[in-house]
């Protein structure tokens, strides 16, 4: 390996030319706390939490976006770095609402996690609240910008991963916040309601509405999305035979962190009260509930009568572009070997 050599916490490490201090430290197994950094996004340096001390230059610098330069002598937990990190977090917390106890983000909040890691509580600074209200304008996203920490993960994710560029970080000073270009509602903007920004928000500023207050899951199961043909993997959070939430990011999936509005918010149909839960048979013109035994007898009778009376080609079978491979195979085998007809198709053309 050629390239630059730097020291981190006294250990020497060789780095590639484009490496940043944060990456070099991780290569050594040294964890630097971060808030606005995300492995899938370009580094930004917005939050300042990843501050470290370079004793060679005598400066404090943000590890996420500072290139590793020859001769650096980085200390990630020096008293100066720790004090700066603590001050930065105190500032962020100073205008963060004290609503942790009811915040749906709960233990998944990165800010809360970091605050407790450096020994801060919310009341340690004078609280200066911000004026933003809650936006509940669409059925997908609950937005509370009073909790926004300005990390711009949402803005970067929308641009760099989703490619939609629907939100930007605009306005000035304390009013700066993520918003659509004309500060309109998301409906009617370039937003595709893919939910990526919500899934990546490190705090409770962006929360999914479906599945809010649903509690904690018992297990997670990876399934293939039932909608289009892309084949995204959905990770279902399940409890009591109910889907609580849907997320992405399963290893080996075609979609990585991405989903669309249907995949992320469109599985409600599974538990819908309209689901058929018993066979129905027509009696006197009406469809009425029946036992499986009675229903299957009718099926066997109806199909058998057609085959006996008019030959196997008087029966037609429609398989399903929603059924599994194994089931489609079985349906084809059934039509051809049990009924004896090639009259089998599905809606590929429709």
């Amino acid at each position: 390996m050629t390239g630059t050599s730097i020291r981190i916490n006294g250990k020497r490490v060789s780095v590639y030319p484009e490496a940043r201090v944060l990456g070099a430290a991780r290569d050594l197994g040294i964890q630097i706390p971060t808030l606005c950094d995300h492995p899938l996004l370009s580094p930004s340096g917005y939050c300042g939490v990843c501050v470290v001390e370079d004793r060679a230059s005598g400066t404090l610098l943000t590890a996420c976006n500072t290139p590793a330069a020859a001769g650096m002598d980085i200390w990630t937990d020096s008293p100066r770095a720790c004090e700066a990190r603590r001050r930065t977090l105190e500032l962020i917390l100073s205008d963060h609402p004290e609503s942790c106890v009811i915040c749906e983000k709960g233990n998944a909040c990165r800010l809360r996690d970091l605050a407790s890691a450096v020994g801060l509580s919310l009341t340690s600074e004078k609280h200066v609240g911000r004026l933003y209200g809650i936006n509940d304008a669409n059925p997908f996203i609950h937005r509370d910008l009073s909790k926004c920490i300005g990390c711009q993960i949402c803005v970067r994710a929308c641009r760099e991963i989703q490619g939609a560029e629907a939100v930007e970080f605009t306005d000035l000073g304390v009013r700066a916040r993520p918003m659509t270009s004309a500060d309109t509602e998301l409906a009617g903007s370039a937003c595709e309601l893919c939910g990526l920004c919500v899934s990546m928000c490190p705090v409770g500023a962006l929360l999914e509405k479906p599945g809010r207050h649903a509690g904690t899951e018992d297990e997670r199961r990876a399934v293939i999305c039932p909608y289009c043909g892309v084949g995204c993997t959905l990770e279902l959070a399940v409890r009591d035979n109910r889907i609580l939430r849907v997320s992405a990011g399963v290893e080996g999936s075609v979609n990585g962190p991405s989903l669309c509005a249907k995949g992320r918010y469109g599985l409600g149909y599974v538990g819908h009260p309209d689901r058929l839960t018993a066979p129905l048979v027509r009696e006197g013109g009406e469809l009425v509930e029946a036992s499986w035994d009675a229903a299957l007898s009718r099926v066997v009778d109806g199909l058998g009568r057609a085959v006996a009376g008019h030959g196997p080609d008087s029966v037609a079978v429609l398989a399903s572009a929603k059924a599994t491979n194994e089931e489609n195979y079985l349906i084809g085998k059934f039509a051809r070997s049990v009924i004896g007809t090639n009259n089998i198709d599905h809606c590929a053309r429709l």
Partner: peptide, 30 residues
């Protein structure tokens, strides 16, 4: 004449083949 209640895709184990010919497993979640 007869309607039979089926299981949704998330209620069964199986494979699906996506648009790029990739055969993928889907778990029974419910």
């Amino acid at each position: 004449d007869v309607v039979l209640p089926g299981a949704a895709s998330v209620e069964k184990e199986g494979t699906f083949t996506n648009t790029e010919r990739k055969v993928q497993r889907s778990a029974r979640a419910l």
